[in-house]
Amino acid sequence: MKRFNKRGMLDDLFDFLFTITAAFFLLIFLGAILNGGVNESNEQAVTKVAEFRQTESAVNNLRIQIYQQDNFLSIEEIDDQVAGSKVLAGRVITGCSDYITKTDCTGDAVRIYTNTPGFSCDWDDDGECYTAPSIT
């Protein structure tokens, strides 16, 4: 029968403790790394989906504009307007007609026409926002 002496048993105990400690730090390290990556991945995924939804809403807004305002758009204009669309309180604004309050409309809240001189948003008597040649 084989018998352990005291020194051998102590050696095994230290090996065991070392392994536990190393594994503990290793797992903490790995967890932190992987969590960070996953969070970043989630953020990117959410951003991409949000961008997709914004683009989709912008395309739908333009479709409504085409019907309601007899507004012909070239493919370049569609791209420009979709790219220039902005979000206001969860609502995608592609043109003046997408504003639903007078304050947002007259102030062009998301500055949809900031880079388009000669145009502004005006509020009509029917309670709708429309694109008008700027009076200023």
Binding site: A45, F52, E56, V59, V82
Partner: peptide
Amino acid sequence: TDFLVNNVLVAEKESLYVDS
């Protein structure tokens, strides 16, 4: 999302242009 943005939405824009 890449498929939706680069394929589906491009087709949607083309369809919007055709409607226009």
